[in-house]
Amino acid sequence: MAIDLQTVKKIASLARISVTDAEADALVPELNNIIGWVEQLGEVDVTGVEPMTAVIPNTLRLRDDVVTDGDVRDKVLANAPQAEHGFFAVPKVIE
């Protein structure tokens, strides 16, 4: 399927990246080239093949359900663009 301008704008919106009209125009052929190229995978017969989930066999470990960290609020906030009263601050969400 070809990617048109409207699709580019929708992808950008889903990815939360604002794009100008000029940027979106430029992305149409670029993304079409790349997607058109990866579409060759459709010709591979994958009947009965399971999608890979782990390259090296490994079991997911469980650990004891106990608190292992905490009490590091200031460290967590240290790189925040805006922190107030011990919280991350963001623009008003509720009108």
């Binding site: 990866v38 995978l41 459709g42 591979v44 994958v46 093949v49 399971e50 999608p51 890979m52 989930t53």
Partner: peptide, 15 residues
């Protein structure tokens, strides 16, 4: 499914 799942299946074949 057409892209990501297919790619993960081909990845199995490559391995």
């Amino acid at each position: 499914d057409a892209y990501y799942t297919q790619a993960q299946k081909v990845r199995t074949l490559i391995a």
